[in-house]
Design a protein around this nucleic acid. Structure first.
Ligand SMILES: [Zn+2]
Ligand SMILES: [Zn+2]
Ligand SMILES: [Zn+2]
Ligand SMILES: [Zn+2]
Lengths: 168, 168
DNA sequence: CCCTCTATGTGATTTTATAACATTTCAGAG
DNA sequence: CTCTGAAATGTTATAAAATCACATAGAGGG
């Protein structure tokens, strides 16, 4: 087996919540946004988004591909990468560069600069907002004349559960 | 040819400076730090650091490997990856996650949380400091109980030169 | 209906990274 | 100085991640 499948042990992102509703609502919101913008949330694309929403964690493209195959879709890499491209470009999914993996956005539709907290032990990923123009990086950009177009902000460490489990 | 070689057109990182001295000084500093800490800056490791210092930009592992081969070292991937592992672990080189590439540190020896500005047009990379605990991400971490151990902060955009070149 | 553009399916390939094992080098012990 | 064990290097092979190229299928406009 190439990938971790199954959502049984998937940690919710640092806090309990009604996960079924969380998936439903976000999918519905995505459909609405696509309708508004004339985007086609095709079956593969919808399925990939659904898979990423079900897990509250980052999945690699090949893990997604395995799940797509199980669901009866094509099983070659471009199938997964093309769906992911669409979802990332339109803000429904973010890529976690540190992990070469993808995670569903919790604020679909709204343009925002995400920041992520990644647990090195259980792989949970939580999305927060970053404020790229404030702080040291923004200051450095202004002083050198660098024009920021996109930012990658990823913190690696221990999530609350794993920190507690591993003492202290 | 697999990679961009040659430093002729390599942009200096957003500002003119005495590059020869820049390379020399940083290499000397690295040797001193290694001596202090009992680390072995072996020929391959030193060469990789030198190559990265000469280019003020990120190089992929295979580009480095090509240059190592030219310099008479082993030409199989582990040669490059092992040297890079050493240099990254000891803070002489940083990995740019967005590019799957590596860049020499401009503050070798000192522990710090780097932030990078990456020009999407000319590939120049400039290092700045980030302040992970301040700002939105730090606040999110504190409020959820996430323990940050390491951060990846990378801004993509246009460097001053390329911004000017491409109009306004 | 026909044409065109977009999306999907599939095979092959490129790029990035690691595993596994043999050989060499070197610092420190005796 | 010589032995010895750990660290470093060289090399083969393989895994993992991403893209290319081209054929087929669908949706929508005329
Ligand atoms: Zn988001
Ligand atoms: Zn955790
Ligand atoms: Zn320089
Ligand atoms: Zn640095």
């Amino acid at each position: 087996m190439t990938s971790r499948e199954g959502s049984a042990s998937a940690p919710v992102a640092f806090s309990d919540h009604d996960h079924a509703a969380c998936v439903e609502d976000t999918l519905a919101a995505a459909e609405e946004v696509c309708a508004e913008r004339g985007l086609r949330l095709t079956p593969v694309r919808r399925k990939v988004l659904e898979l990423l929403l079900q897990e509250h964690r980052a999945l690699g493209a090949y893990a997604i591909l395995d799940l797509l195959r199980d669901a009866g879709f094509g099983s070659q890499p471009p199938v997964a990468y093309r769906a992911l491209d669409f979802l990332v470009k339109n803000g429904f999914v973010h890529k976690i560069e540190r992990l070469n993996a993808f995670v569903a956005c919790v604020h679909p539709g709204e343009t925002h600069s995400p920041a992520f907290m990644i647990c090195r032990k259980c792989d949970a990923v939580a999305e927060a907002q970053s404020t790229p123009l404030k702080g040291a990086l923004g200051a450095a950009a202004r002083s050198t004349g660098f024009q920021i177009e996109r930012t990658v902000v990823e913190a690696e460490g221990l999530c609350p559960d794993c920190a507690e489990a591993s003492g202290s």
